[in-house]
Computed example of a mutant assay.
Amino acid sequence: MPDIAMEHAFLPDSPPVQEEDLTHAFPGGLTDPSILRSFNSHERGPLKCRNHFSKILAWPWWLVDNNTRFKAIIEQSGLSQLARCTYRFVNTVLISSFVERWQPEMNTFHMTVGEMTLTLDDVGTILGLPIIGKSISVPDVTDHHGVTLLVYGFGITERAAHEEVSSAGANSVRLEWLRSQFAGVTDSDPEEAMQCAARAYLLFLLGCTLFSDKSGRRVPVVYLGLLMDLGSIHTYVWGAAALAFL
């Protein structure tokens, strides 16, 4: 399990957890449910969890011999470890149990032993992402602006950009489209093509990990704006952005 910061630790003389504690209301729980309205509304079966392990594994840039320049750009970005933080299998029942105890009003887990929450230090430790640096802010973009980002970021035609945005919907691009268009880059390609492929992969990686959505197949174009200057990607506080997004 990840190292999650706890606000209330176990006490040496704490009584053992009883069976009724696990099946009834938490001891010392809420007396006024009007404050945390979601406290008693988490009754559902196991959740459907999105897992992009197979997608990431389908773009194995780290195993290709003839792409040292591409590898250098990805490693320099500071995001390469996200490709190594995925899991082949996900325990949906365990994750659902944690979600049942999550209070969106407080951003904390309400457990039988007390409250606990994720901190920036946890994110930095678990994901290895920077938590100090330039803040990340992405404004809403129009369809026209999204197409412009694709044209300049990926070096494709305006027509191709329009077609992809229309196909993906929600001013996004498909994860599979990014892989199919840019996965074949090698050291023999021009520098501009190498940089476009690197932006495509990093957008693909963000869509598979930090900023994945319920569709499980696309990523918003707006994040491409953060990847235009490949030399400054590592200076952003990706850890803080991940925590805020979650």
Results as ranks from 00 to 15, higher is better:
81 Q>I: 06
59 W>L: 09
197 A>Y: 01
227 L>G: 04
191 E>G: 02
235 T>R: 14
116 M>V: 14
217 R>D: 12
195 Q>V: 01
230 L>T: 03
55 K>H: 07
60 P>F: 06
143 D>G: 08
93 V>H: 11
120 L>V: 03
125 T>D: 02
4 I>Y: 07
234 H>V: 10
74 I>G: 01
91 N>Q: 04
3 D>S: 14
201 Y>M: 05
211 F>V: 10
227 L>R: 10
6 M>W: 05
177 W>T: 15
33 P>K: 07
228 M>L: 15
196 C>G: 02
207 G>F: 02
225 G>V: 00
57 L>M: 15
25 A>Y: 09
54 S>K: 07
147 V>E: 06
138 V>Y: 11
170 A>H: 13
118 L>I: 10
49 C>L: 06
189 D>F: 06
117 T>Y: 05
121 D>Y: 08
36 L>I: 15
4 I>W: 08
157 T>D: 07
246 L>F: 14
53 F>A: 07
19 E>Y: 13
186 T>L: 02
236 Y>M: 07
159 R>K: 09
164 E>I: 08
194 M>P: 00
232 S>K: 14
237 V>F: 11
231 G>Q: 15
208 C>M: 06
216 G>A: 00
185 V>I: 08
61 W>K: 07
13 D>P: 09
236 Y>R: 01
38 S>N: 14
7 E>H: 02
72 A>Y: 11
226 L>H: 03
190 P>F: 11
80 S>W: 12
190 P>I: 12
101 R>G: 14
38 S>R: 13
234 H>Q: 13
122 D>I: 05
80 S>Y: 11
49 C>G: 04
54 S>F: 11
105 E>V: 05
161 A>K: 05
123 V>W: 11
69 R>T: 12
199 R>V: 08
